[in-house]
Simulated scan of single mutants.
Amino acid sequence: MPRSEIDEIDRRLLVSLQEDARLTTEELGLRAGLSASPCARRVRNMETAGIIKGYVAVVDQAKVGLPISVFVSIKLERQREEELDRFAAAVGRWPEIVDCYLMTGQRDYLLRVVVKDLPAYEAFLKQKLTRLEGVASIESSFALGQIKQSTVLPMVKEG
């Protein structure tokens, strides 16, 4: 049965995989101080435990024709479970929404929407977001530039 706790060797493996998921088992093991077989076993155990959720290619959104990021704050009319579930189900179907967080504070959700241009955002807003039942208000903020982007979690030692 895979364990869900991670130790320092697992942390080294995770940091290395976050930096470059294409490392071979041998290269990964060298970075963590393991031979290939125990390295592969630890990675497999972390995959099975859900610590490693998957592997992706990080794509430059501007270079694929999607240069616009819009941060959208959503306030619902009510925060009942049914409304929250309905909202989550809807945004899960829309590929323009690349991040969605349930929030505390003034707004209920914060979304990051990625589109090719302003008319595409307007269409998304009019045809999808404003038609969603239970939405009380929508506030859009356009990103002017990206200062930092990282997929690497700050894995620190315990203690």
Rank of each mutant, 00 (worst) to 15 (best):
Met1Asn: 06
Pro2Met: 02
Arg3Trp: 00
Glu5Trp: 05
Ile6Asn: 05
Ile6Leu: 08
Ile6Ala: 06
Glu8Arg: 10
Glu8Trp: 06
Arg11Asp: 10
Arg11Tyr: 00
Arg12Lys: 15
Arg12Trp: 10
Arg12Phe: 00
Leu13Cys: 05
Val15Leu: 11
Ser16Gln: 10
Ser16Met: 02
Leu17Met: 12
Leu17Gly: 06
Glu19Pro: 06
Asp20Met: 08
Asp20Arg: 10
Ala21Pro: 04
Thr24Met: 03
Arg31Gln: 12
Gly33Glu: 03
Ser37Arg: 14
Ser37Val: 15
Ala40Met: 11
Arg41Ile: 14
Arg41Asp: 13
Arg41Pro: 05
Arg42Lys: 14
Val43Ile: 08
Arg44Ser: 14
Asn45Asp: 14
Asn45Phe: 03
Thr48Val: 13
Thr48Met: 07
Gly50Cys: 06
Gly50Arg: 06
Ile51Tyr: 01
Ile52Gln: 03
Gly54Tyr: 09
Tyr55His: 13
Ala57Arg: 14
Gln61Phe: 11
Lys63Ser: 12
Val64Asp: 05
Ile68Ser: 03
Val72Tyr: 01
Glu81Val: 15
Glu81His: 04
Glu81Met: 04
Glu82Asn: 09
Leu84Val: 15
Leu84Cys: 02
Asp85Met: 04
Arg86Leu: 00
Ala88Cys: 10
Gly92Ser: 09
Glu96Asn: 09
Asp99Val: 12
Gln106Pro: 00
Asp108Ala: 04
Leu110Val: 07
Leu110Asp: 08
Leu111Cys: 06
Val113Tyr: 02
Val113Asn: 05
Val115Leu: 06
Leu118Gly: 01
Pro119Lys: 01
Tyr121Gly: 06
Tyr121Leu: 05
Tyr121Thr: 10
Phe124Tyr: 12
Phe124Cys: 02
Phe124Ala: 07
Phe124Val: 10
Lys126His: 02
Gln127Gly: 01
Lys128Trp: 04
Leu129Gln: 01
Leu129Cys: 09
Thr130Phe: 05
Leu132Lys: 03
Ser137Thr: 13
Ile138Leu: 14
Glu139His: 13
Glu139Phe: 10
Ser140Thr: 15
Ser141Asp: 13
Phe142Ala: 12
Ile147Asp: 12
Ile147Gln: 12
Ile147Arg: 11
Ile147Ser: 11
Lys148Arg: 11
Gln149Thr: 15
Thr151Arg: 07
Thr151Met: 08
Val152Tyr: 05
Leu153Met: 11
Met155Glu: 15
Met155Arg: 02
Met155Gly: 00
Val156Thr: 14
Glu158Ser: 11
Gly159Phe: 09
